[in-house]
């Protein structure tokens, strides 16, 4: 497991060399030029640049120092570590409540209520209606000639009535 860590450590140690203001490191400025065209932003004065570099470095060092102090004390007395730090700013706790649980609930609702019950229920419902309709229509086909004859007679009477009453 130490190999990837070693690779990452080496890269992060020397990665800062990329794009130092001297050749051959300063190629990143023009890296995208073939695609987006030449572009040069006006640089702030060199004094400001040195000031901001030193400021950033100083702030980082102070941050490291503060972090070390807090951690040292807490490492010796775990009970002194504030809950908010021990629970990592409650990020996981919030994530579980805001993203994970509602997301899972929505997914389960979509999969097992909307998809299975409503959409597929409608699909299978259509199949069921056709099946039941066919089953009840099947009872008309009794195989008795007298039943069919009765149907034909009723139809004839209906047509005759129509002709006599409506069409004349």
């Amino acid at each position: 497991m130490w190999v990837p860590l070693a690779v990452l450590a080496v890269l992060s140690a020397v990665g800062g060399l990329l794009n130092l203001p001297w050749a051959p490191f300063n190629f990143l400025d023009r890296w995208l030029e073939p695609v987006v065209g030449p572009y040069s932003a006006p640089l702030p004065s060199s004094g400001f640049r040195y000031f901001s570099a030193v400021l950033v470095l100083a702030v980082s060092l102070v941050g490291v120092a503060v972090g070390l102090r807090v951690w040292e004390r807490a490492a010796r007395h775990a009970e002194l570590e504030p809950t908010v730090l021990r629970r990592a700013w409650f990020i996981d706790w919030l994530y579980a409540r805001i993203i994970e649980r509602p997301g899972l609930a929505l997914s389960n609702f979509s999969a097992y209520v909307v998809d299975q019950e409503i959409i597929d229920g409608a699909v299978n419902g259509v199949g069921g209606v056709v099946r039941r309709g066919g089953r009840s229509l099947r009872t008309l086909q009794t195989g008795y000639v007298r039943n069919y004859a009765l149907g034909i007679a009723a139809g004839t009477v209906a047509i005759l009535l129509y002709v006599v009453v409506v069409a004349t």
Binding site: G103, L104, S107, N108, S110, A111, Y112, D115
Partner: peptide, 10 residues
């Protein structure tokens, strides 16, 4: 979105 949500809980 729907396909992805439903896939998640299969």
């Amino acid at each position: 979105v729907y396909g992805a949500l439903v896939a998640t809980v299969q």
